[in-house]
Design a protein around this nucleic acid. Sequence first.
DNA 1: CGAATAGTTCGATGAAGATCGTACTACGAA
DNA 2: TTCGTAGTACGATCTTCATCGAACTATTCG
Lengths: 103, 103
Amino acid sequence: MTRKQLPQPDRAEIRVEAVLQALGEPVRLQIVRALADAPEGIACGEIELPVTPSTRAHHLRTLREAGVLTTHTEGTRRISSLRRDDLDSLYPGLLTGVLSAAQ
Amino acid sequence: MTRKQLPQPDRAEIRVEAVLQALGEPVRLQIVRALADAPEGIACGEIELPVTPSTRAHHLRTLREAGVLTTHTEGTRRISSLRRDDLDSLYPGLLTGVLSAAQ
DNA sequence: CGAATAGTTCGATGAAGATCGTACTACGAA
DNA sequence: TTCGTAGTACGATCTTCATCGAACTATTCG
């Protein structure tokens, strides 16, 4: 089974505007909430979303390029997980603050 | 001198998507950073911004309607300040996390 | 190899929104 | 009340982006 890390920004390259903009979209926030409940990562397709697979891929790419999540392949699947360490280090409190919000 | 509070959402009406979306725009983030350095509030016109007055008004309205800042009039001036208490109460850590980001 | 599965990429479309100029309102000062 | 100042509201324009379907890639399985 092949395993490959998808391209993503280094911690130093993460910009807060991009992170906030990424989190400010309802579908993407839904993805982030789902990932927060799965520290070990989750297959993209398993997240229930009100959009088509192509739109889902678009949002996952946006979140990945903003530095919010990391994705690696496992066979034909793509497993995503939150970049908690990086985000907590860069913006301590941001993620917990966002996730503590009533849904 | 007249003093009037501009309409804004109650704490309970603030939605995290709106807050994040409001913060995810560079000019608006610049406004928020300026307000963070002025707890007592600041006149809108005194914030140096790379946009025209009408665009500035648009962004201030967006931030106010999202619940990020509060504005009251003082004569012909409008004084804005961050709604720190409300935001910290709703999303503990979010604001500090955002503001701790390198600019 | 071929078929099935998971997911992406591309191009088009429509909606949202950032920006500006102009006209307008509100207030204070003369 | 007239003038100047601070700022808003409106309408237009232009850009960004969320969405989709269709075609494509990559991987596993038979």
